[in-house]
Each structure stands twice: as C-alpha cells, then as structure tokens.
C-alpha cells in the first residue's frame, strides 16, 4: 500500500457534461483505481463514466506563477461583449 500510486479521479455525472475532478485515492494499478473510484465516488448514481489519472502524471502550474500567467488577461476588457455599447433600440445582440 505504501508504494501504491495516488490516482486523481474524474467523474462524468451525465452524458453531455465534462468529467469533473472529484478527489483522489491510492490503488495498485489503473483498473483497481477505477473499481475503487466506483465504490468511493459513485455509490449514489453520481456518474456514468470514470477517468483515473496517476497523480504524478499531472503537470501543474506553479502557484507562484499565478500573477505572470493570469494577470495579463485582467486589463483586456475589449475581450468582453460589455465593452461595446449598443444603441438603446438594440439591446439584444
């Protein structure tokens, strides 16, 4: 158990929706991770599909980089429809 990798678990609650991260668990291999995820996360019909990904296969952005990565979008107000004023007569476009 000590050497069992950690798996991140993603559940699709309904066809048409994205798989969504729900949590993680340890398992000896991906098949076992699916079985355990089924028992842990779908006991009340929460899902129709399960994805498991070994946690160390996920490359995550560094929280220290958040400013560099995401701040440049904040002053680009022209990417939003509300930046463009429509005439009174035309409020739905």
């Amino acid at each position: 158990m000590r050497d069992w990798p950690l798996y991140e678990i993603f559940i699709r609650s309904k066809n048409g929706l994205n798989h969504k991260h729900v949590g993680s668990l340890h398992a000896s291999d991906p098949q076992m991770a699916i079985q355990n995820a089924r028992d842990v996360y779908t006991r009340r019909n929460e899902g129709v599909s399960i994805w498991v990904v070994e946690a160390n296969h996920i490359t995550a952005s560094n929280p220290d980089d958040a400013e560099v990565l995401f701040d440049p979008a904040t002053d680009k107000i022209y990417r939003h429809p509300t930046f463009y004023e429509l005439p009174e007569a035309l409020k739905h476009m």
């Binding site: 429809p81 930046f83 476009m93």
Partner: peptide, 13 residues
C-alpha cells in the same frame, strides 16, 4: 464569440 459580433457592429455604427 459574443464580443465578435458586437465589435463589428460597433465599427459600422
């Protein structure tokens, strides 16, 4: 895309 049409209309307006 909701801003695309508006920016075009804004140019013409």
């Amino acid at each position: 895309e909701s801003f695309h049409q508006r920016q075009g209309y804004d140019i013409l307006l």
